[in-house]
Simulated assay, not measured.
Amino acid sequence: MKKLMILWVAFFLQNSSAIFSQTTSDSLLPIRGFCIAAPQSSQLDNFIKFIKTELAPRHVNRLILRVDYNYQFESHPELRNPQALSKKEVKKLVAVCQDNQIELIPQINLLGHQSWASTTENLLKVYPQFDETPHVQMPEKYVWPNPDGLYCKSYCPLHPDLHAIVWDLVDEICDVFQAKAFHAGMDEVFYLGDSKCPRCSGRDKAELFAGEVNLIRNHLALKNRKLWIWGDRLIDGKTTGIGEWEASYNNTHRAIDMLYKDIIICDWHYERPEQTAVYFASKGFSVITCPWRVPQNAILQTQDMRKFRQYANPEMKERYLGMMQTIWSGAESFIKEYYDTSNIQDPQKSQKATFIGLFNEINQVK
């Protein structure tokens, strides 16, 4: 009996850091997320290995995969990307995440981000009638700023034929990923309520934005799924001084008072550790803070989130859900960066260093 007790004490001392780290992380930061583009089919095995060897040991419990058209849709095969993931391959992702207690959340960019640089994304390429600004031609060589104010195209939220296709995509991707939640993007929407759109012209941009978000939320609710969105369009970029990228200059910020409160807000700020999580929580929303590539900012944002949960009143406390690392290169590029640092030009702006710093801060014992 004495020998057994000694062995138990030795085991406890050896593993106490991991035990307390998990407990502390769960109580202070319930969501520890990681957001990245879904891998191409040829890179699936490397990505699954990354989940097992890097995400799981750091107790990541939400994996947001930006799938968009990188899946072999059966409902709309015309929208598939080349090398898109098959249903069988997605099932492998689902299995490894379930084995490691990671909730998998797929994303398809809705409303905005229907183009990138000089490339039109599949929805508007196949269905150009959904384009909010068909008069804006895609340039051969993209530059910003430009006379058309083109960053990314948007679809027209009031087109009568749009949502039948969108719902097919959303339902199919949620089913195959066995998802309890869906991320709709909704960030950086510059084209909305365009003066030349026969349906949207003259309408309130805040009402258009809120109408689309609530419509998506209601569709997901039919199957008890939650909606996640990026939060930038709900912040007044001029009043706050945050600007037109991480916040809104086209009055969509007023939509925050028109939305269902069960929508999860992913509050991203990359160059400064803005404390807008407090704003979203005070408006009744649950919020996740999302850094990208500046390690020191990610650490400060994590410390802020921990303080919000520790010191806020009970009504507000539970709305501060945690942290989510965002990666804005492809899965293959990030994994290459992660294991080969020889090509990193600026370590002060490194996705890998931010990832490591963020989860070290999350998992340290307090």
Rank of each mutant, 00 (worst) to 15 (best):
T24M: 10
T119V: 12
H159W: 03
T239G: 05
S282Y: 04
F50Q: 03
N46R: 13
H76T: 10
P57E: 01
R58S: 01
V60C: 06
V213A: 10
L29Q: 04
V166H: 08
H269S: 13
E315P: 00
P347L: 05
V60S: 08
S333T: 15
W292T: 03
I51D: 01
G211T: 04
T133C: 04
H113W: 06
N297S: 07
T24N: 14
I105P: 14
E318T: 15
V170Q: 03
L65C: 11
L158N: 04
G231K: 00
Y142W: 15
Q14K: 12
D267M: 12
V176W: 02
L300H: 09
E274S: 04
P139A: 14
P157H: 07
Q22V: 07
I263R: 01
R32M: 04
S201V: 01
I229C: 07
V60K: 05
T276H: 02
N61G: 10
L300I: 03
Y279L: 02
L85E: 13
A255N: 00
I242Q: 12
C174Y: 14
K3S: 12
H219E: 03
T240A: 05
L93Y: 10
N109Y: 14
C197Q: 00
E337A: 01
L150G: 08
N360I: 06
K336N: 13
S248Y: 00
P134V: 09
P295E: 04
I36Q: 08
A298I: 06
S75L: 09
C197R: 00
K283P: 01
K52T: 08
F34W: 10
L93N: 03
K283H: 13
N46L: 05
L150Q: 05
N146I: 11
S21D: 12
T53C: 12
A95Y: 04
Y191F: 15
V67S: 02
D340W: 05
D187A: 13
I64F: 12
K226N: 04
D68R: 13
H135V: 05
S195N: 10
S286V: 09
V213H: 06
Q101C: 04
R203M: 14
R58A: 07
K52D: 11
L28A: 11
